[in-house]
Structures are given as C-alpha cells and as structure tokens.
Amino acid sequence: MKDLLEAGSHFGHKVSRWNPKMKKFIFGEKNGIYIIDLQKTVKMLEKAYTEIVEQIRNSKTILFVGTKRQSQDIIREESMKCGAFYICERWLGGMLTNFRTIRKTIDKMIEYDKNKEAGVIDALPKKEALSLARKMKKMEKVLGGVKTIKSLPDLLYVIDIKREYIAVHEANILGIPVIAIVDTNTDPDVVNIPIPANDDAIRSIKLITSIISQAVIDGKQLAESDKAAAEEEEKKAEKKKIVEEKREKKVFEAKKTETKKVARKRIQKPPKKEKEPQKKKEITKRKKVEKIVLKKPVKAQQKELKKKKEKEKKVSRKKEGV
C-alpha cells in the first residue's frame, strides 16, 4: 500500500468526470478530485495476481494491452520481461473477433522477415525494396508483440479500458476474462477483475504492471516445477514397474525349477503296482479255496495207504511167527 501511495495510485479524476459505478472503490474527495480506496486496490491486485498465476500455471496465455503514450514503453518492457504477448502501438479492429485474418497478416510478416534474411528483398528493384521495408517496419511496430501467437489469448490485461474499449468489447464477446486498471471515470462492470487505480500516472502504471508481470513469471516457474515433478513421478513409476517385472520373473523361474525337480523324482521312483480291481480279487480268492479243497482228499488217501501198509506188515510178521 505504501508503494501505491508513493506512486500516486490513489488519485482519481475530477468529480465532474466520475462514473457512478466506481462509487464502491472511492474513498473520498479532496480538492475536487476523487481519492481511490487503496485497501480495495490491494485486495483486487491480490485477486488478479492469484488468477494470473493459476492460469499461467495451467499453460494459458495472456495479452498485455496499453496503447496510450504513458504505458507503451512499460507494456513493452514488462511483457518482454515475462515472455507475454503485447499490443502497445495500435489495437487493430477484429484482432480477437477476426483472429484468422490477423493471423494471415502475421504469417505474411514472418514470410517477409525470412525473405529479408535470405537476401530476396535486396535483389528487388530499389523502389520496390524501400516500399516493402516501410511496410515491414509498420507491421513490426503494430504486430511485433504478437508475432509468435498461435491462438486466441486466454487472458487480457488492459491499462485504460476507456481508451481500449474495442479490445475489452471483443474480449467480452468471446468470453475472454479481462483484468484491467480502472480509474474513477470508467465502468468496472465490463471487466472481470478491476484494479481501481490511477491509469494516467506512469509510476502507478509501472508498479501495477510489474506486479502482473511477476505473476506471469511465477506462474511459469510453478508450471515448470509441476512438469519436473510429473517427470520424476513417471520415472519412479517406470522403476517400480521394472522391479515388479523382475520379481515376477524370479517367481516364475523358481516355479519352473520346482516343477523340473518334481518331474525328475517321479522318473527315478519305480512305478507302484496298481491295485487289482474287485473282480480279480474275488477270482484269486476262489482259486485259493479250490486249491485247499483239492489238497484235502490227497492227504486223506496218503494216510489210508500208510495204514494199509502198516496192517500188511503186521499180518506178515504174525505169519512168520507162526
């Protein structure tokens, strides 16, 4: 707030030139000039800063616009410092709403630059070369800040919305958010994030634009850190995947060796006798029984023969004794 006071950001326009919609941002009146409430300026600046940081972090683009004499050099310097697109000479009608045509003009300008580097323009007649050089200079002056732009910007930062009303109107038609410095003579409703401050004092413009530029730089740094973190996570995930694959491979190889060992053991062991079915068992039992039955009469016959022989012997002995 001290810097804003020193820069004279609190000075508005004359009481006779005020816009009633700016009443909420006015602190009071002094010597016929409205004094802007710097507490609200700081609050809106913080809001603008966080919004820009978040947008740039998400790979969005911002366009700086300020064609009034006080802001031209500041816009050029600060936008080049943070690597943003800028318009500081003249706003071409349809730069946003008729972007396709503007893009063709930019492509033509790039083609002229390539021809100049290749030495094609030097080979042209003197008069033609001079007229082409003037045309290139004019194009570079107006469109030099948007030479590398490929699509419509995602954000617009405007210095004086009363002077740049065409740019603000085009942004509103396309739904592009606008962040702007609004003085006591402007309508803040046409802007998404109005920053109430003096839009005529060079020091005030410089201070606020430098904060916006820093927000862009911070957003880009955060985007880079996010990208680096994402790459590290990817690397970690890849390493984890490789480790898991190796582990799975080891488990598979271990299982393979186990199956081989089991197969070898089976080959070494003699094959077990298969159990006979019930029918075969019954047949074998019957045969055994039959054998036993057959054996019994043979033994009886032998005994009988023995007895006969013994009787015969006894009889013969008796006869001999007689």
Rank of each mutant, 00 (worst) to 15 (best):
T61E: 15
E54I: 05
D73S: 11
R57Q: 11
Q55Y: 13
F64N: 05
G83I: 10
G66N: 01
E77Q: 12
E51M: 09
S59T: 12
Q55G: 04
I62N: 01
K68D: 08
K60G: 05
F64M: 07
R76F: 12
F64S: 03
Q72D: 02
L63G: 02
T61A: 05
K60T: 06
Q72W: 07
T67L: 04
T61D: 12
S79W: 09
K68N: 07
K81A: 12
L63A: 02
S71E: 02
N58P: 03
Y49G: 00
I75Q: 05
I56D: 06
D73G: 06
F64K: 03
S59G: 08
K81P: 01
E54T: 12
K68C: 04
I56K: 02
Y49P: 00
T67G: 00
F64D: 01
E54W: 12
E51F: 15
R76S: 10
E54K: 10
E51A: 14
T61G: 01
E78S: 06
C82F: 10
I52R: 03
K68Y: 05
G83S: 02
I62L: 13
T50G: 00
I74T: 06
Y49D: 12
M80S: 07
G66F: 07
M80L: 12
E77N: 10
S59N: 15
